[in-house]
């Protein structure tokens, strides 16, 4: 009965399940997924298109697009279960406690409003007593933090390049100093050099603002060195969960291993790039057992019929695979 003594994680996702109720049937986009995130941590969410990573990000701020429904589970932000909140209570959290950076910076800013107006809108939504001048002053400070000249506050979005617009989006996401910032593929629409700069910016801001960062991406290589924890998702399931270094050195799930082998390495001239054969399953009719077995080189008999359990292969390293489950079973017997 000492709840107030135990420190709650900043963000806790607990057995979250999200379905899309389509005309053809329910699509389970996120299946029974749990994780927790502390202040100052970075979580990488990796998976290919349709693996449910964006849905997971949006369900944290309760903006799963129609016809998506959270069927089960909890999302706790500062200990508050946001799944149960009313629309109005949820609006107070969006932008204030959780910042969101979208994928396409070219269309994520309102084309008819100046940059400053975006900040006024955001700040005054959550702090109605702030004057326009005060809001603009804060906006300029935040813009300065993301590397945009403060005097450009009077410019329109079309006067900025893609990378600069993404910096503005990031500034909007951090302007109210939220505890969590979710960046949904923040660099997919940008070129490689700008990508590296934006990711470093996010990392520096995480340190100065002391927030937790969720980085959603399909590119395992960019999260490996930047994230404290990485969740690899496949077809709505968590398949592997470990720290970045652990995942890099000891990937256990065949899918993660495949992803790592498909990263080109410029130092190995003779390297042959491996690809994972096949394509992700149709989630309207997912395979019965492990959702990956059709593409898995190590699939056994039970993979086809039973869903593999999640096992902890080493402290803090979880894998959803029979291969590892059998191994740890054997270890225990020995």
């Amino acid at each position: 009965m000492n709840d107030d003594v135990i420190s709650l994680p900043l963000l806790e996702v607990d057995s979250l399940t999200v379905d899309y109720r389509t005309r053809d049937g329910d699509i389970r986009a996120v299946n029974n997924l749990s994780f927790a995130l502390e202040k100052g941590e970075t979580l990488g969410l990796v998976g290919e298109s349709g693996s449910g990573k964006s849905t997971l990000g949006l369900s944290i701020i309760q903006l799963v697009p129609v016809p998506g429904v959270i069927v089960n589970g909890h999302v706790r932000i500062d200990g508050v279960d946001v799944v149960r909140l009313s629309d109005e209570e949820m609006r107070a959290i969006r932008g204030k406690n959780v910042g969101f950076v979208f994928q396409d910076p070219m269309t994520s800013l309102n084309p008819v409003k100046k940059v400053g107006a975006h900040f006024i809108e955001l700040i005054r939504t959550h702090e109605p007593n702030v004057t326009e001048a005060e809001a603009l002053e804060r906006a300029q400070k935040t813009l300065n933090d993301v590397g945009i000249l403060p005097e450009r506050i009077n410019d329109y979005p079309h006067q900025f390049s893609g990378g600069m617009r993404q910096r503005i989006m990031i500034a909007l996401a951090i302007a109210l100093n939220p505890g969590v910032v979710i960046a949904d593929e923040p660099t997919t629409a940008l070129d490689v050099i700008v990508q590296a700069k934006i990711l470093d910016l996010l990392k520096n801001l995480r340190d100065t603002y002391g927030m937790a960062l969720i980085l959603i991406t399909h590119d395992l290589s960019i999260v490996l060195e930047r994230c404290d924890k990485i969740i690899v998702m496949y077809a709505g399931n968590l398949v592997e969960y470990a720290t970045g270094t652990e995942l890099h050195s000891h990937p256990r799930h065949p899918y993660t291993q495949g992803l790592l082998q498909s990263i080109p390495n410029i130092e190995l001239a003779e390297q042959k790039l491996e690809a994972i054969p096949g394509s992700p399953p149709n989630l309207l009719n997912p395979p019965k057992g492990c959702r990956f077995w059709l593409r898995c080189s190590e699939a056994g008999e039970n993979c086809e019929t039973e869903e593999p359990p999640i096992v902890e292969v080493s402290p803090g390293h979880f894998v959803r695979c029979f291969k590892e489950a059998d191994k740890s079973e054997r270890n225990r017997k020995r």
Binding site: L63, R91, R94, F102, S108, L122
Partner: peptide, 26 residues
Amino acid sequence: ELPYTEAARATGAKGQTVLLRYILPN
């Protein structure tokens, strides 16, 4: 359906605000 209306919602804007300040001017 454009991202900036979704982005507005993600910053806590009300439906009414999205309609009048983000959609109408465009």
